[in-house]
Each structure stands twice: as structure tokens, then as C-alpha cells.
């Protein structure tokens, strides 16, 4: 079952900090942020089977074009800390080793109300 939050009220300029433990025996995990399951400004999806991080957006239920980053610094079963900063033009994701990746705010969202997390057992959630 995936961890889900609605009515998040995350505004431009805010940062979300997530801590959790990556599950074992999974091919990938994902953090999705947007305005609903079919309106995702950021789909952040590290894949163990391909050793790559895939980011994408979903508008009106349709996926956009994938952006791939080979800085795959996650391992199954490990504790991780991630931050996502929401800016008007892009999302900035800081990985546990400090590496930052960005993904454009393709849907032009000015606030985010929805979060879901799959394959990562959340132990802490913080919004600044």
C-alpha cells in the first residue's frame, strides 16, 4: 500500500523533507508530487533494475517524456533522506549524497496538494 497525502498545501518556494527506509525486494521506488494521482508535476522514480533515476510528469492521466539521470545512489533496504524544493519553474531534488537533480515544472503548478510514496517506508515528513 502506498503512503498518500492530500490537501498538502505546498507552495512555490517550499521544501519537502522526507526520511524513510527503502523496501527490500523491489525493482524501484517512487515519490509523486502534484495535484492528484493523474496530475503529477514530479514523478521521481529510482529504478534498481535499470540502475537509473527516471523523472517524469503526468498531465490528464498521460505520462510526459521521461528524463533519465544515471546518478543512481540508492540501495534497497537503506535509510535515506531526500528533499524536494518546489520552485515556479522547476523541482529540485537533493539526493542523500548531496547530488541535486532538477526537473521542469511542466504543468505550471503554483501549489501542490498531493503526495504519494511507493516502495519507501516513510519515517518522517517535514515541510518548510
Amino acid at each position: 500500500a502506498k503512503f498518500e497525502m492530500t490537501n498538502l498545501e505546498m507552495k512555490v518556494g517550499q521544501t519537502l523533507k522526507l526520511k524513510g527506509k527503502i523496501e527490500t525486494n523491489i525493482d524501484s521506488f517512487a515519490i509523486n508530487l502534484g495535484q492528484g494521482a493523474d496530475e503529477l508535476g514530479l514523478h521521481f522514480n529510482p529504478r534498481f533494475n535499470e540502475s537509473i533515476i527516471v523523472c517524469n510528469s503526468k498531465g490528464g492521466g498521460s505520462w510526459g517524456r521521461e528524463q533519465r539521470d544515471d546518478h543512481m545512489c540508492f540501495s534497497q533496504g537503506s535509510e535515506v533522506k531526500l528533499t524536494v524544493t518546489f520552485q515556479s519553474d522547476e523541482f529540485k531534488v537533493t539526493l542523500p549524497d548531496g547530488y541535486q537533480l532538477t526537473f521542469p515544472n511542466r504543468l505550471g503548478h503554483s501549489h501542490l496538494s498531493y503526495l504519494n510514496v511507493r516502495g519507501l517506508h516513510i519515517s518522517s515528513f517535514k515541510m518548510d
Binding site: F3, E4, T6, N7
Partner: peptide, 11 residues
């Protein structure tokens, strides 16, 4: 106002 809702917490 309706505030934050979180599900599948598994506490």
C-alpha cells in the same frame, strides 16, 4: 478548512 489527510501510515 479541510486540512492534510495522510493514508497508509501503517503505524
Amino acid at each position: 478548512a479541510c486540512g492534510l489527510v495522510a493514508s497508509n501510515l501503517n503505524l
